[in-house]
Nucleic acid binder design. Structure first.
Lengths: 205, 205
DNA sequence: TTGGACAACCGTACATTGTACGAAAGCCAT
DNA sequence: ATGGCTTTCGTACAATGTACGGTTGTCCAA
C-alpha cells in the first residue's frame, strides 16, 4: 500500500520540480486531501494552499477541476493495477489471493477515491474506458491464471475462464464498495468472512 | 417502477397541501431533479424554483441540504423495499427473481439516487442504519424463502440461508452499481448475462 | 547591455452555491 | 382591534470555480 507525501514535503519538492513534475505534485496533493477529508474538501483553493501557491497558479498545471478529478482517477487506477500485480506476485499470501486482498484494502484505504473511480459518469471516450480497463486487468488476469492452474478445462476454456473472472470481479467490487461505505452492518456478516467465501468460490481449498 | 410527478403538477398540488404534505412534495421535486439532471443539479434554489416559491421558503419545510438528502435516501429505500416486495409477490416473473430484477431496474432508473443511497457516509446512528436495513430486507427475505423452498436443509439452516442471501445481495449490488455507472464495458459480458448467472447461482433450473 | 518574447505567478472580480437574519404579510382566537 | 403564531422571502455573507489581465522572472538575440 503506497502512501502519500505530506504537505511540507510537497512544498519542498515543489520548488525544484519542472513543469511535468509539478503537475504530478498537484495531483498528489489533491489525492492527499481526498483521502484525509473527502471529496468536498478537494477545492482548487485548498489544493493551492497546500502547495503554498496562489489559487490561480494551479491553472498553469491543470486546466480545471474536471481535469484534476480525471487525473486523480487515472492515478487511482494506476495504483490499483500496480498494487494488484505486485501483491499477487511478491506477496507472502498464496499467489493470486493477494491481488484480491489488495483490491479490498485499496478500497478501504482510499474510500473516496474508490468512489470517484467507479461512480463518476464515464465518458464513452475510448481513452477513459481504456484507463479503467487497464486498472482492473491485472486482477482479472490473476484470477484467470489461477483457474487454469486449478484445472479448469474444456474446448471453450478461454470463454469460461473469462466469464468466471468477470463474475468474481463484480462480486468483489460489491463487497469493496459496500464495506468502504460502511454498509455491511445491514447483514450480520463480517467482511472477512464474505471475502473468504468469495475467494473459495474460485478455488475451494 | 413508480414514476415521479412533473413540475407543473407539483406546483398545483403545492397550494392545497398541508405542512406535512408540502415537505413530501419538496422531496419529490428534489428526486425529480436528481433523476433527470444528477446530484449537482439538486440545489436548494432550483428545487424552490420548481415549486414556484422563494429559496428561503424551503427552509420552512426542510432544515437544510443535508436533511433534504437524508430524506431522498429514505424515500429511495422505501421505493426499493416496496418495489422488491411487490415485484416478487405479484410479478409475472417466477416469484423471487422479480425482486432481484426490480433491484437492478431501480439502480438503472435512478442511478444518482442509488449512488446517494449506498455511497453517502452513513452515520452510525441507529436510525439511519435501520432505514437501510429495512430497505434491503425484503430482497434478502425473498432469497431466503426461495432457498428454503429449494430444499436447503440442515441443523444450522437459519445461518446457512442467512449467509447465502447476504452473499447474493453483495454480488447483486456489485452488478447494479457497475451497470448504473456504465462500468461493465471493461468486461466483454452483457449485464443480462451476469444477472442470469447470479440468479442461477441461488436456484439453478 | 538592452530589448523583447515567453512562461510563471497571482490579485481582483463575477457568478453560483448554502443559509443566517430579520422584515413583511397572512391567519386566528380573544 | 390586538397580540401572537406561521409562512414567505429579500438581503447579505462566506465559500466556491474560474475568466481576465497585470506583474515578475528568465533567457536569448542584437
Amino acid at each position: 500500500m503506497a502512501s502519500l507525501p505530506s504537505s511540507k514535503r510537497l512544498q519542498a519538492r515543489w520548488r525544484q520540480a519542472n513543469h511535468q513534475q509539478r503537475r504530478q505534485i498537484v495531483v498528489s496533493a489533491a489525492l492527499d486531501l481526498l483521502r484525509r477529508h473527502g471529496l468536498k474538501a478537494v477545492t482548487m483553493r485548498r489544493v493551492a494552499h497546500r502547495l503554498g501557491i496562489g489559487a490561480m497558479t494551479l491553472y498553469t498545471y491543470i486546466r480545471g477541476q474536471d481535469e484534476l478529478r480525471q487525473a486523480m482517477i487515472r492515478e487511482g487506477f494506476n495504483m490499483l493495477a500496480q498494487g494488484c500485480r505486485s501483491a499477487s506476485t511478491l506477496g507472502s499470501d498464496q499467489g493470486w489471493r493477494g491481488g484480491a486482498r489488495y483490491y479490498i484494502q485499496f478500497a478501504l484505504t482510499y474510500p473516496s477515491l474508490y468512489d470517484l473511480m467507479f461512480r463518476t459518469p464515464l465518458s464513452t471516450s475510448d481513452a477513459d474506458q481504456q484507463i479503467m480497463r487497464d486498472g482492473v486487468q491485472p486482477l482479472l488476469d490473476r484470477v484467470r491464471e489461477q483457474m487454469v492452474l486449478q484445472g479448469t478445462t474444456g474446448p471453450d476454456l478461454e470463454q469460461k475462464v473469462h466469464r468466471a473472472a468477470g463474475r468474481f470481479w463484480v462480486a468483489l467490487h460489491g463487497l469493496a464498495s459496500l464495506q468502504a461505505a460502511n454498509r455491511l452492518e445491514a447483514l450480520d456478516m463480517s467482511a472477512d468472512e464474505l471475502l473468504d467465501e468469495l475467494l473459495h468460490s474460485v478455488s475451494p481449498t
